[in-house]
Design a protein around this nucleic acid. Structure first.
Length: 569
DNA sequence: AGTAAAATAAACAGTA
DNA sequence: CTACTGTTTATTTTAC
């Protein structure tokens, strides 16, 4: 090795945490404080209140701050789900450590842990009231007593830390009320205890009827929300900028960050497909322009799998279930494209993916090269690894080389087909499936599910669940775990489905070129079997020449039953 | 510790 | 001869 593994040095086991929880909370507390003050002033200026009302107002504000906090925590959660904010291992020292080993490498880079993030966060702060206070206070040790500190819950726990209480408002049961939770009225400033919903409703109607006070409180609440939205927009914007910045310079510590917009599911497939399809062949992105930060990237949320990159040298770790490659790739397509992270897939699976992504299911060697460099910033940046062993530093357009060629030649699953223009490479799906014995690791659940041949959705879910479970506990939040559905729309998604457990049926006709059989006119070279024991399969012919025409779209051969009982290994 | 698979490196042959 | 493509062998790493 020793080639240009630029940013991915080996072994630097300390994950750099961007925003440790405590800091974030402090930060948000500060924001709340500011907001609190500001709102207070607004209120007072706007319309003078009787003293008592003011006291009441303060209570109301506190309540609102709680809500605001809740929003913020949700935001934080979102960030965490996206992997933008790693969970401070420091606090959850133990089990959390299942974080992908490569994570450190992603973060590793330059020195001071947490520095950049902290800087960027504190530099702006909440500008409701002039940033100075906010900025400094954030940087300052958390001794600043939050305005809410006196607002403690019965158990003495600062309200700040008990989002649980508020969160109930989101998970209401049919018979509940947004303003009623945990037996008390959640109207800003009102914590009246109500035995049941009925009583609460009564209370609501009497105490919080339509009057000046209620409307004023409502207005304040609106402002709170508004401010939060503004703040959110700002933070999002900043995040985008950070992303852009980092993508532009992959040599920087590379968080697996993604712009906001965790568009769940829906747009994923579109983005991916279009991106994959839209690239003209042979187009190689200039390394420098790699950034496409504006597009809604999706988090490599799946966590570990996607982060298995880099490493001291090579690591194909997840290739055991490397079948999810296309979905994983689909989901994190943008990520790999921009982040200098080694994709956790084997060359073979990547090559296959490249080939299968094309309508014809065939690629020339050069096109495969291009696919690699196009799809993976990593391969763009580590061209040294790719260059032919020979020497030529000069020969410009030589990127992926030896490894790809080697793999193409080595694996029986890659079949060379000659057409008029030259030779193209295709995939013999059957061979590809064979070459991976169903030994897989991962969570027992995952394995079980795979073996029992659950639907892709289930499989994918459990896969993700397993990953999330082991790596990113917070990923378990409902929102983020469903990309499976999206990816299942992808033309290639079926490949993963079948891959892990269900080798494709012998028809394996693994997609004869759907469009242009003519090209296969010439000879098909069948690879020599090292082990002569396999006479029953004819990879080559099954592929190209034979059964041309119709062979429906790939989707057809989806989950064909029957697996070739025979092993091979 | 042993093994299989993959990554990596490199030599070499064929062809345009 | 050079560049590219393709095959093969050897070694090292990694995961199991």
């Amino acid at each position: 090795m020793g080639q240009g593994w630029g940013c991915c040095g080996d072994s630097s086991p300390l994950p750099v945490v961007i925003l440790p929880h405590p800091q974030l909370q402090e930060y948000y507390k500060k924001q709340q404080e500011q907001l609190h003050l500001q709102l207070l002033t607004q209120q007072q200026a706007g319309k003078p209140q009787p003293k008592e009302a003011l006291g009441n107002k303060q209570l109301a504000f506190q309540q609102q701050l709680l809500q605001m906090q809740q929003l913020q925590q949700q935001h934080l959660l979102n960030l965490q789900r996206q992997g933008l904010v790693s969970l401070q291992p420091s606090q959850a020292s133990g089990p959390l450590q299942t974080l992908p080993q490569d994570l450190p490498q992603l973060w590793k880079g330059e020195g001071a842990p947490g520095q950049p993030a902290e800087d960027s966060v504190k530099q702006e702060g909440l500008d409701l009231t002039g940033t100075a206070a906010t900025a400094t206070s954030f940087a300052a040790p958390p001794k600043v007593s939050p305005p809410l500190s006196h607002h403690t819950l019965p158990n003495g726990q600062p309200a700040v830390l008990t989002s649980r209480r508020d969160s109930s408002s989101h998970e209401e049961t049919p018979g509940s009320h947004p303003l009623y939770g945990h037996g008390e009225c959640k109207w800003p400033g009102c914590e009246t205890l109500c035995e049941d919903l009925g009583q609460f409703i009564k209370h609501l109607n009497t105490e919080h009827a339509l009057d000046d006070r209620s409307t004023a409180q409502c207005r304040v609440q609106m402002q709170v929300v508004q401010q939060l939205e503004i703040q959110l927009a700002k933070e999002s914007e900043r995040l985008q900028a950070m992303m852009a910045h980092l993508h532009m310079r992959p040599s920087e510590p590379k968080p697996f960050s993604q712009p906001l917009n965790p568009v769940p599911g829906s747009s994923f497939s579109k983005v991916t497909v279009s991106a994959a399809d839209s690239f003209p062949d042979g187009l190689v992105h200039p390394p420098t322009s790699a950034a496409a930060p504006v597009t809604p990237l999706r988090p490599p949320g799946l966590g570990s799998a996607s982060l298995h990159g880099g490493g001291p040298a090579r690591r194909r770790s997840s290739d055991k279930f490397c079948s999810p490659i296309s979905s994983e790739l689909a989901q994190n397509h943008e990520f790999y494209k921009n982040a200098d992270v080694r994709p956790p897939f084997t060359y073979a699976s990547l090559i296959r993916q490249a080939i299968l992504e094309t309508p014809d299911r065939q690629l020339t060697l050069n096109e495969i090269y291009n696919w690699f460099t196009r799809m993976f910033a990593y391969f763009r940046r580590n061209t040294a690894t790719w260059k032919p062993s020979k020497l030529l530093l000069s020969s410009s357009s030589l990127y992926p080389q030896n490894a790809v060629r080697h793999n193409l030649s080595l694996h029986k699953c890659f079949v060379r087909v000659e057409n008029v223009k030259g030779a193209v490479w295709t995939v013999d799906e059957r061979e590809y499936q064979k070459r991976r014995p169903p030994k897989m690791t991962g969570s027992p659940t995952l394995v079980k599910n795979m073996i029992s041949g659950l639907s892709y959705g289930a499989l994918n879910a459990s896969y993700q669940a397993a990953l999330a479970e082991s790596s990113f506990p917070l990923l378990n939040s409902p929102g983020m775990l469903n990309p499976g559905s999206a990816s299942s729309l992808l033309p290639l998604s079926h490949d993963d489905v079948g891959a892990p457990l269900e080798p494709l049926s012998s028809n394996g006709s693994s997609s004869p070129p759907r469009l242009s059989p003519p090209q296969y006119s010439h000879q098909v070279q069948v690879k020599e079997e090292p082990a002569e024991a396999e006479e029953d399969r004819q990879p080559g012919p099954s592929l190209g020449a034979s059964n041309p025409s119709t062979s429906g779209p790939p989707e057809d051969r989806d989950l064909e039953e029957e697996l070739p009982g025979e092993e091979l290994s």
